[in-house]
Structure formats: structure tokens, C-alpha cells
Design a binder for these strands. Structure first.
Lengths: 232, 232
DNA sequence: GTGCATTTTTACACTCTGTGCAAGTTTCTC
DNA sequence: GAGAAACTTGCACAGAGTGTAAAAATGCAC
């Protein structure tokens, strides 16, 4: 990545209320980071997992090998940034939910919100590729685990803010972990059913699976309730 | 590990109904494997995570570096074998439960069964050390994930055997994932409360946390039920 | 036991990962 | 524009992980 002048003109996002002037340094860094993940993803597609080196990525991104390691600690970390992006997005949605809403309902809403092609596409691709690669899969697991920790924090903070009391730690951690597990389960089933199909109907199915999974969790997995049994 | 003559006299286990004569080769391999994990654990204790190399382990286990890699693909893999042992044990307990029992109840019973010092001790030690080390932590996550997959298989197979029908995949995966997550949550809380205390009362607390976590799961995390609130 | 097939260990060579360091560039601030 | 701060790069080096072929250990038949 040659320095200056070629940073894509990213207009300042107006999501949060803070407009920190994106300096050229920040823009360059963001562009380099993006170039790295793009190159990594491209190589993953063309050569398959495990069949390319950090040097290959660096060359493709037009940076030095050393600079790669200034951004990511490994090939997997570079790829996992895609998943991290998705989950950070989910977290943000979660935090936007009304504070008096049950946690489970907030999670359901946040997840459903994300089942659109733009958001799901990169994540879906990586998810499917990770299935066949132990290294990648571990990074994915780590990303989900990190997200669990963040949900725990968010929920704890929200509860304390609204009630002034402290939520039982076991309840908190068990619930957050279960939510994430159910989200993963929904995605697993979706992939098993549809591969990486990103059509509207396929995404509708994913949405339904996410809702169903949260429903199962909310009803304590009562064996009788077989809910929406239409499989495909 | 020098060859022959020093393999500990492991009497043939009578767990399963197959008594395959443990040849010297098998005994040697088992002994070497054990020597490696022992050496690794020892070094982990004495030098701390990340402060020793594969060569150190190999030297301590009296084998060559290359032989180490014939047994494990990395330092973390060698250490994770402890966790794998624990979880394999849990799986075995799960499979021993009566086939008509609800899955959740089987899981609860299997987990509670394992809360004794002999079984928990190595696992507990590794668990606490993994908290502070990303590399180790990823291996731990992988071990739990592997266990989830095995629960899924076991439960699916059991259900098909007893009813002849197929269990809904989403139900299966969501439940298995949640069970594991709740188990982890219980262990997390236990560690946060008691460190690696392995006294009888501490283990009783762990047992109670496991039961509570499964209870939460079974009741759909109804926010009102605050169950056994005695914290310590 | 001897001889031979099979399995396991080992040394060696090699590629790739990941990091410290110091020198070179770019960007920021004044 | 000059100096400070941040970023990139090349270089060197320790360590991970793997293929290969030779040596050692074990199993098996006689």
C-alpha cells in the first residue's frame, strides 16, 4: 500500500454523534487495513485455506510483510476481522434496543436486523470456508467468544442502569452464552440447508431460524413445541 | 522418551467389553504421550504460558523435537489434551444415561457426575491458566466446540434409536450448544468465585452452579426465577 | 534366538511465522 | 518550512511445523 493520495474518499459516517475529523493518517490506515483483508479474502477464494502465505497477502496488498504484522498478528486474524465486523455490528444493534426490553428479545431483534445481504454476505462466505479449515475455525470461535463477552458486559451494564441492582452472574453468562450458541446453531442449519445462498427467500429462512432458535431458548427447549416445522 | 522397558504397568482397563491386548508398542505410545503432556503442564506451571518452546517440552520428556510433532501439532494441542480428556469423560457419562431421559437432564447428570477432585483438578488448572493466554484459550474453545459436535451426534443418534424419528436439527444444535455454554458459564462463575479451590465445599458449589445453569436453561431463563441465590 | 517386516524415533534441511530494531517516509503541528 | 510524531520497511533472528531418509525398536514366524 503506497502512502498518501490513494485513500478512498470515505465520507464521515454520521452514525454516532461524534464527528472526529478523519485525518489522512486514519484514512490511510483504514485503507491499508481494508486492502489487507481484501487481499486475504481474495487469496482464500483463489487458492483455498492454508495454501498461501503472509508474504502472498502482503504482495497482493502492496505492502511489506512487516507491515502486515503491524496490522494483524496472523493470516487468520486478518480474515477474522470480517466476522468481527459482523458481530460488532450485531452488538451495536443490541445496545440500541430499549433498556426495558428482555435481553432475549433484544438479542432476537438485533440478530434479525442483520439478516440482509450486505451484512451477511462476507460473513457467510467466511463461515463456510472456515468449516473445512481448523485454523480458520478457531479464529471464528474466538470471534464468537469475544462477542459473548461483550454481550455479557452490555447486558450487565444495561440491567444495572435500569434497576440499580446487580444481575446474577450465572444467569448473565449462561444466557449470553446460550444466545450466541443458538445464533450459531441457526447459522449452521442455514448453511447446511442452503449453502451460501443469499437470495431473499434464503435470507428469510435464516431470519426465521434465528427467531425459532431464540424461541426455543425462551421456552426452555420444551421437547413438545415443534414450532415452525416447514424445513425449506 | 527412551524406548522399551520403562512403560508403566498399565493394567488393561475393563471399561468397554473389548480386551485388546495392550502391546508394548501401544504402551510405549501411551507412555510417551503422557510424558509429553506431563512435561508441558510442568513447564506451564514453572515458566508460565508462552515462556517455553516445543524443544523445552521435548527435552523434558526425553524425546526429540520431531517426535513431539508426531504426537501433537503444537504446544497448545498437547495441553488441550487434558481438557479433551475431561470432555471425553463427560461424553461417556452422557452416553450412559437412560435413553428415554430428556437430553437436558442427561447433560445435567453427566456434568454433576464429573465434579470430583480427581477429574476436575487438571481441567481446572488448565482452565485458569488459559484465561490469561490467548493461544491456550483458543485451544480450549476448540475443545468445547468439539464436545458440542459430539453431543449433537450422541443426542441425534439416541433420539433416532428410541423413537425412529429424526430430531429437528435446529432444536438439536441449539440445545447442545446452549448446554455447553451453560456448562462453561457455570465454570466461569465458579472460577471467579473460588479460583482453583478444589475443596469439597468448593466442588459442591460447582455442582450447584451446574445444576442451576441447567435449570435456567430448562426454564427458558425466566427473569423472575432467581433460584439458589446463596452466592458463596 | 534368528531373520525379516512393520512401526516408531530421530536428525537434518527447509519454509514460514512472528518480533525487535534501526533507518527511512509520510503526516501533523506550529 | 522545520521539527516532532506516526508509520513503513528491510534485516536479522528465534521458533513452529513438515518432508525425508536412515536408524532403532517391536512384532512375528520359524
Amino acid at each position: 500500500m503506497p502512502p498518501t493520495q490513494n485513500a478512498p474518499a470515505i465520507p464521515p459516517r454520521s452514525e454516532t454523534a461524534e464527528p472526529p475529523p478523519p485525518s489522512r493518517r486514519e484514512l490511510n490506515k483504514a485503507a491499508t487495513r481494508q486492502a489487507i483483508t481484501d487481499a486475504a479474502l481474495q487469496l482464500l477464494r483463489s487458492k483455498g485455506p492454508g495454501n498461501f502465505t503472509v508474504e502472498d497477502i502482503a504482495d497482493a496488498a502492496a505492502i511489506s510483510r512487516r507491515t502486515f504484522f503491524n496490522y494483524f498478528s496472523s493470516t487468520e486474524a486478518a480474515l477474522a476481522s470480517v466476522t468481527h465486523g459482523f458481530l460488532d455490528n450485531a452488538l451495536a444493534q443490541f445496545r440500541l434496543r430499549p433498556a426495558d426490553e428482555p435481553i432475549l428479545e433484544s438479542a432476537r431483534a438485533a440478530l434479525v436486523q442483520l439478516a440482509d445481504p450486505m451484512t451477511v454476505a462476507p460473513m457467510a462466505e467466511l463461515y463456510s470456508l472456515a468449516q473445512s479449515n481448523p485454523q480458520l475455525n478457531r479464529s471464528e470461535l474466538e470471534a464468537w467468544d469475544h462477542c459473548t463477552a461483550e454481550i455479557i458486559d452490555a447486558a450487565r451494564e444495561r440491567f444495572a442502569r435500569t434497576t440499580g441492582e446487580e444481575l446474577d452472574e450465572l444467569y448473565l453468562r449462561a444466557l449470553a452464552g446460550s444466545i450466541i450458541s443458538c445464533g450459531k446453531a441457526a447459522m449452521d442449519v442455514w448453511f447446511a440447508e442452503r449453502g451460501a445462498d443469499l437470495s431473499a427467500t434464503s435470507l428469510a429462512r435464516l431470519r426465521q431460524l434465528l427467531i425459532d432458535a431464540m424461541g426455543l431458548l425462551g421456552s426452555g427447549f420444551t421437547p413438545t413445541a415443534n414450532l415452525s416445522t416447514d424445513r425449506h
